[in-house]
Nucleic acid binder design. Sequence first.
DNA 1: GGCAAAATCATACGAACGGGTGACACCGCA
DNA 2: TGCGGTGTCACCCGTTCGTATGATTTTGCC
Lengths: 162, 162
Amino acid sequence: MTLPPLSTRWTLLRHALLYGALGGVLIVALQLIEYRYLVITHSYEIYGGIIAIIFVSLGIWLGMTLTGRPERIVVQEVEVRVPAEPVAFSADPARREAMGVTKRELEILGLMADGLSNKEIADRIFVSENTVKTHSSRLFDKLGARRRTQAIQVGKSSGLIP
Amino acid sequence: MTLPPLSTRWTLLRHALLYGALGGVLIVALQLIEYRYLVITHSYEIYGGIIAIIFVSLGIWLGMTLTGRPERIVVQEVEVRVPAEPVAFSADPARREAMGVTKRELEILGLMADGLSNKEIADRIFVSENTVKTHSSRLFDKLGARRRTQAIQVGKSSGLIP
DNA sequence: GGCAAAATCATACGAACGGGTGACACCGCA
DNA sequence: TGCGGTGTCACCCGTTCGTATGATTTTGCC
């Protein structure tokens, strides 16, 4: 399980800040209103009940918005083809680091081998296409490849990818 | 958007009633407390802020509990043993002709999988680069691929090439 | 805290790739 | 003899790929 990409974390932070600020503004506004008008004309019991309801509603709204809509449980069964090779393929970091290949580069190599274009890889792992190009370029250097097909061939034959 | 099943709706209703009652009790309790002690010792601003915070917290808790924690989509991978070919790969024409791939196209697919460029393939089999392009183009059509890497992937997974 | 590695992104440019079209030759078969 | 399948080649055009260069941010580690 990897951390969400930067943009996602940014979005989360922005949301948290936004809701916090919104809540603060509402509290101030309600306090202003309460002291201007309500106190004068109503008894404290009614006035207390009203602001209690308002704030509880606000809180409920905040809570529901923060947690988001509940998602359905989807148990998705995916067929995993087990290769006839002696054992299952292990993406051991030993071989990887022996060639100076980083995790990200290996990840991209795997997606390359699945036949994805740079753009598709970029969309898949939530980075720009330029980033994918940079990674693959460095990857080719390390594998001594000039083309992605060659990189895939080298990766397979050296046990980097299944 | 479909309605949740009956049992779920029942549970939701029970929860709603329970939380509503609980909220009412809390409101009464807080109002009792507020009139007994807080009013006397603090200014109205502080007192208002405190109950605001309390009620907002209550509301948030209610909201989060009502909606429930967002549940994950569980992707369950089921291993399926595939009687894959033990050792030797046979370039049998059965699979090849089953997909309408000609010998020449298969030959080019194999060279592609070795990481050769169109020009290199052309030099290898003594034809022009344009010819290689024509072959590969038709090959992609038959394999439903848009890129050579994708063609390689399809070719491998369908047993066309080792 | 600071440093090195890793990851991210941008821009620009040439090379490689892929699609589309058209053409010609060869071969086997009806 | 014609017809379909295959192989061969050419041209154009747009897309994708790979390289080079420079920059910033994030991360892991001392």
